[in-house]
Design a binder for these strands. Sequence first.
RNA 1: GGCCCGUUCGUCUAAGGGUUAGGACACCACCCUUUCACGGUGGUGAUACGAGUUCGAAUCUCGUACGGGCUACCA
Length: 512
Amino acid sequence: MSKKVRVRFAPSPTGGLHLGGVRTVLYNYLFAKKHGGDFIVRIEDTDQNRYVAGAEEYIFDTLKWCGLEPDESVQHGGAFGPYRQSERKESYRQYAEQLVKEGYAYYAFDTPEELEKMRQTPIATGNKTEHGHTQQYDHSIRMKMRNSLALTTAETQKMLAEGTKHVIRIKVPEKETVSFTDMIRGEVSFDTSTVDDKVLLKADGMPTYHLAVVVDDFLMKISHAFRGEEWLPSAPVHILLWKYLFGLENMPQWAHFPLILGPNGKLSKRDGAKYGFPVFAMRWNDPKTGELTEGFKEKGFLPEAFINLLALLGWNDGTEQEIFSKKELIEKFSMDRVHSAGAKFDYEKAKWFNHEWIKRFEVSNLRFEVGELLKQDGFVVSNEAFLDKVIALVKDRCVLLTDFVQQSSFFFKTPEVLDIDAIKPKWNEAKQLFFAELIRNYELSSGWDAHTLENNFKEIAAVNDLKPGELMLPFRIMLVGGKFGPGVFDIAEMLGKEETIKRITMAIKVFQ
RNA sequence: GGCCCGUUCGUCUAAGGGUUAGGACACCACCCUUUCACGGUGGUGAUACGAGUUCGAAUCUCGUACGGGCUACCA
């Protein structure tokens, strides 16, 4: 009997949540839900220097918008708290001390200056001193540094007793092969001689990621540990810690997701919107710089489309299906169909996903968002039934939610400027007379539906020996203001008799 | 530089030894539509390179090249 599936997303609250982060959340979430497990969010705030106000709150807001609610977290509670690493500070030291006691780690007293000097020391591996090579704090140099391995026991005890600032480093064995099975990449192995003695416990008593992730994954009974590929190089450290602390048999199964690349490599939080597309899920307001970065939400993406597009960036179900609801994703997701290669983000395709979702969405699902957008732009939306009809009429031509404003503004407000250039050259007296007659006809019209409106329009055109086609565009410009929008007669029907006639009348004057 | 991961149309990907290498986005053409879209039909376009294993390789192995990641008392 296998243990319960428990996965975690462990962000550090230092800024906005970008595409890669959300996809990591998504895959964690899908995997958990697929296997009836728990999805946990653990805040990794062990670096006090990088604290950013509001970032934690922002992460949860983003998850909520995406529809990826955790089962356990700072906000959702749970039996394995606290879910903020800074609040677990006390528990880490004992594990680090245990490692020292057992000979798997050691105290290091080196000052930042000494470390800097060490990095400069040219290393002669073989016989060449390569440019750009930085010396790592590893087996080759640790006996020359100031740590409990190189110092005598008495010296170490004295420094400890005096309260000398120190860290605890892992003592990576020299010639071992550490390997593990990655759910996506298969067997991955490392020669420990190339792994450095990472700091486990910092001078301020806080653990580094390396110690914290292992301890917390154990304490929180995490069954599967998923994270981005950028963590692969430090995996041997974590494997070693599991071996020393809790036993390899208790270690979660690992999967390292491929990176999502921008035009210049890995997407990073700092890239903001400089690529011409958002990198954050939602708007991020950096309290330090005051910089406001818009996200996919503000850009007009539906959360359903957003997670759909993210899911397909590195995963597919083996069929040609591309549009998946969250329910379907949960049903069909499987880790062995996740790609191992990084994926370059394609904003055009992202927009296509959103367009597909808008087209497929029921009007009632769009009503609220579209209504808000229109109000934001100063349009008065008083009648919900009318709004619904408008949405139904224009949604096929809206790629982003924000397109609704431009596509439907003329339903709510008489256009202020008309695209006269499209009409003027071909405007003549015959056409003017036609529209005058059209006004009279429409005024007397008893029925006001697109069909009769169109019939009457064409009848009058025929009687006056005019081509309906040449009159449709002017009519459109009169009602819409430009060369876009749904069928003209549908628009006229929606606008109603009074408004339609008003717009024709006004336009005739403008065209003269 | 070292270590690790990766490499199929411009982009996302399918094809887990035998296919005319399939689909989607984008692009182009035509049809539909006397607006713009939607929709429909068709088109351009890819297995990085070199060896090997095999009757047969995009698929397995090795090398090379290229790309990416990591190389902090950051995650």
